[in-house]
Structure formats: structure tokens, C-alpha cells
Nucleic acid binder design. Structure first.
Lengths: 186, 186
DNA sequence: GAAGGTAGTAGACGCCTGTTTACTTCGTCA
DNA sequence: TGACGAAGTAAACAGGCGTCTACTACCTTC
């Protein structure tokens, strides 16, 4: 560790943020204590409230970073169902998952941060999706797609990274693509 | 209150169970305290551990009751997609929802009860669905359907009982039915 | 009427929580 | 060299948690 930077405000802030991101993704809001974050960041507990105000605000900042999801939506209309299918399939049958998405799903039952979560889901998934969809019932179709995306997170949460024991990865993607197509078409 | 029955073990047990079911459905496992359950049940705290062993075991017993979900699956194959669609639509756009399903979604991020939740999801949704599905990839298709069902719960959790502001209820059901059809067909 | 068992109760136990206060350490500039 | 401000720290605060123990109230049976 760069001891010369130990007493640098911004460096410490970043260490806390990094530790919080990892821990919130792994255990969810309720089950991560500020003491645990401080220990992992090798920082003093009091600094968390000094730099972020409260545990809640730290969580908000963790979720506020530009996650991977916007990248998923940056494809031509024709490829969108396929892209969403790949995203969900990856979460359902591998151990790779976006830390932000993981933290979101693992924290969904903490009422005190519902506002933060709702805002993140709206701005990262729901609204961009609604804007892209043409035809009627855009909000409904976007909501169903969102439900499928978050639902795959819950399934993974309960059944582990290999929620779907499926040797044929292409079959998973293909099935999901068909579903997203039906979901997103006007 | 029937004062004559106040000192009846079975009666008290039932009051605790009823209170727990309501509270777990409303706030989830983590955010319900045994003191709260005891207060709502008008029973002493110590009786919860005496009659159920622990908070965890009480939760298990709440979830073990025959919920409404099995009824959803008791329709002919041809009507199944429609039935599932109605179930999800009801959760997405009304304030009616099964207490068991509600408790399940609201408690999904408590690792200490993941085993209980997984078992409930498996026995109430996943396995009955797999058994009904013919053709290949039955497990995969059942898993996707389950993800959509639990995902609608998460959406409702975040956005409230009117997660989908859709005046035309039939449009919601119709769209969901199409999706479930694609999901469940071989 | 005494004995025994069951239902219910009050209170404490030990631990953990997020947050705050009073303090020390250290680099920098006059 | 000494003062100042920023970074970091230890310890306590006030409260909550699930659990457990020692106790009382009451009904039943001899």
C-alpha cells in the first residue's frame, strides 16, 4: 500500500467506496455493517459518516456510479432482445454479475433505501427502455422486461450462480431472446 | 377477545402465527422483530421461542402453510399461460397479493433463511411447473417463468401496488399471456 | 385442601447497530 | 519555530436485537 497517500482524503474516500461496493454487492444493504466496510477499506469507522454523511448516503453513492447496464441498451433495435437475453443468461448461469445489479437485488427488501433503488431502476433500465419502445403499452412492456431482469437476479440469489444447470448456453440465450422479442414488440 | 381462551396453548400459537404471517408479508424477515410479533399477537415474547424454537423456525412455519399458489397451477395445460398471466397482473396492478408470496419477496435478501425460501419456491412453483412441461429444456423454461413471477414481486415492492399504471387490465393480461406461452411451449 | 403440571410473565443477558464526540497526528505556510 | 487546518483515531453513546432463566398464576387430579 502506498503509505505516502494514507493521509489523503480522496484516496481514503475511494477505498471506502470500493469496499462498500464489493460488500453491498455480496451481502446487501442490511447485512453489511459500517464497521465491516471500514475494516475492509482499512479506514476508521468515523470517516464513513464524515465523508458520506450516513450509511444510507454511502449506499446511494455506490449505486449512483455508472454501472454496466446502460451499455446493454446501446445496441440497434434489432439486436436489443438478443443483448438483453445474453445479459440475463450470464447472470443465471455464471458467476459474473454487475456489482450494482447484485447490490440492488440483495438490498431490495430494505425499505429505507427503496427510494434509492427505485430511482436507479428507473433511470438505468425502465426509462431508457420506455424511450426506445415504439407502439402502445410501452410502459407495460418495459415493466415486464424489467421484472424478468430483476427476477433473474432473485433466482440467482436463491439458487446460486448456477441457477439454471444448462450445459447448452445457446439454448438459454435463444429462449430468452424469443421471450424478450415478444415482450418488446408493439 | 375471548378471555376464556386466553390460557390455551393452541389458541396462543395460532395468534402468534397469524400475527407473524401478516408482519412478515408487510415488512420482510429482517425488519420484523419478535417483540413486534408478540405485541401484535398480544402474547409474551418468550412464548415465541417456546412454541416455535426461534424466529427462523417461526418464519419457516409461516411459509410452510399451503399458500394460494398451488391453486394457480391447477388448470388444464391450455389455460396455464392465461392463469399465470392473471396471477402476475393482479400483483402488478392491484393491492391484492398472497401473504406468502409477499413475505418471500420481502425476505429474499436475508441469507439465513435462503434455504427456507429456496425450498418454498422449488416446491410451490419450480417443481410443479417442471413436471407439467413437456419437451426439452423444461427446467430452463420453468426457471424463466419463475423469474418473471418473482420479478413482478420485486417490481411491486419498489413501485408499490400500482407498479404498472395501466387502465386497460386486459392489455396487461394479454401481453403476459403471450409471454408465458412463448416461455412454456417446447 | 395439597400437589403437580401447564400457560404465561418480567426482566435480564450478551451482543451488535449507526452515529457522534473529544482527541491526536501530521504536513504546510508564515 | 510555531500556529493552523486537515486527516485520522479511540471510545463512548443510546438503543435495538434474539434468546433465555427464574418466576407467578391457574387449572386439574388426587
Amino acid at each position: 500500500m502506498d503509505e505516502g497517500r494514507r493521509r489523503c482524503r480522496e484516496d481514503t474516500r475511494q477505498r471506502i467506496l470500493t469496499a462498500a461496493r464489493r460488500l453491498f454487492a455480496e451481502h446487501g444493504y442490511d447485512h453489511v455493517t459500517v464497521r465491516l466496510i471500514a475494516a475492509e477499506a482499512e479506514a476508521n469507522i468515523a470517516l464513513i459518516n464524515r465523508y458520506f454523511g450516513s450509511k444510507r448516503e454511502l449506499f446511494a453513492e455506490v449505486l449512483a456510479v455508472q454501472g454496466r447496464f446502460p451499455g446493454v441498451l446501446d445496441v440497434p433495435d434489432e439486436e436489443l432482445p438478443r443483448r438483453l437475453a445474453e445479459y440475463v443468461a450470464e447472470r443465471l448461469s455464471t458467476d459474473r454479475s454487475s456489482p450494482v445489479m447484485e447490490a440492488l437485488v440483495r438490498s431490495s427488501s430494505s425499505p429505507e433505501i427503496h427510494g434509492i433503488l427505485r430511482q436507479r431502476v428507473s433511470s438505468a433500465i425502465m426509462e431508457p427502455l420506455v424511450e426506445r419502445l415504439s407502439g402502445g403499452d410501452a410502459r407495460l412492456r418495459a415493466a415486464i422486461a424489467t421484472a424478468l431482469i430483476t427476477g433473474s437476479g432473485t433466482l440467482r440469489l436463491l439458487y446460486g450462480p448456477d441457477a439454471v444447470e444448462q450445459p447448452d448456453r445457446e439454448a438459454v440465450v435463444a429462449r430468452l431472446e424469443k421471450i424478450f422479442r415478444v415482450c418488446l414488440e408493439p
